[in-house]
Computed example of a mutant assay.
Amino acid sequence: MTAPDDQDIDTMLAALLAPPERPGDRGFAIGVERAIDAQAAYAHARRRFWRSFVFEALAVAALLAALWLLSSAPTLAPLAGAAHWGLAPPLLLILLLWFGTQRWRQA
C-alpha cells in the first residue's frame, strides 16, 4: 500500500473544503449595507444627544450657581431664608419643568 503524496492530500482537502460555486446573495449584501447605515445613524444620533445633554447640564449648573449667588445676596436675604436656598427650589422647579417640555417638544 502506498501513501498518498502531500500534494494529493492538499488538493483533495482544498476540493472538499472549498465553498460551493454559486452566485452572490444580493439580498444579504443589501441587508448588511442597511444594517451598517442604521448603525451609523444611531451612532450619530447618540453623539448628538450626549452633546446636547452635556450642554444643557452645564447650563442648568450655571443657573443653579446663579440662583445660589442671588439667594445669598443681602438684598434678597429676606426671600432666601436661613439656609440661603429658600428662593432656589421654586425657581429650580420652573427651570426643570421648562427643560422637560423642551425635551418632549424635540422628540
Rank of each mutant, 00 (worst) to 15 (best):
R48K: 15
A29P: 00
A3P: 00
L67W: 11
P19H: 12
A80I: 15
R22Y: 13
A14G: 00
D6P: 03
R34S: 04
D10N: 14
R103S: 03
A45P: 03
W68T: 07
Q7C: 01
P90K: 11
T101K: 02
Y42G: 04
A88F: 02
Q7G: 00
Q102H: 05
A77I: 10
G27F: 08
S52A: 06
L76M: 15
D37K: 12
W104M: 06
E56D: 10
L96V: 13
L13R: 09
G100V: 04
A83L: 15
P74H: 06
A83K: 11
A45I: 00
G81C: 00
A107Y: 09
A77R: 07
G100D: 04
A66G: 02
L96D: 03
D10G: 06
A66S: 11
F53C: 01
A15S: 10
D8P: 00
R46G: 02
L64R: 05
D10T: 15
G27N: 06
R105Q: 14
P19V: 06
E56N: 13
I30Y: 04
P74F: 08
A62Y: 11
A43M: 12
M12P: 00
H44I: 12
A14S: 04
L92P: 00
D8L: 10
Y42W: 13
A40D: 09
R26W: 01
A73W: 09
I36D: 03
L91A: 09
F49K: 02
R105Y: 12
A80D: 06
Q39T: 08
Q106H: 05
W50N: 11
S52L: 07
A41T: 07
L93I: 10
V54N: 06
R46K: 13
D10Y: 05
A65D: 03
G100K: 07
G27R: 14
A59P: 01
P89N: 09
E33R: 14
T11V: 14
L92R: 05
M1K: 14
R26Q: 05
S72Y: 15
E33L: 14
P20S: 15
W50G: 05
A40C: 02
L91W: 07
A29R: 13
D5G: 07
F28I: 04
R51F: 00
P78A: 01
A107Q: 05
V54C: 02
A3F: 12
I94K: 03
L76K: 04
R22C: 05
L92A: 02
P78L: 08
P20K: 09
A82N: 03
D10Q: 15
I30A: 05
D5W: 10
A38P: 03
F49V: 04
A59T: 14
R46P: 00
P20F: 11
D10W: 15
A3W: 04
Y42N: 02
A62L: 12
A35P: 01
V32G: 03
L13M: 13
R48P: 00
H44C: 06
M12Q: 15
I36W: 03
G100Q: 09
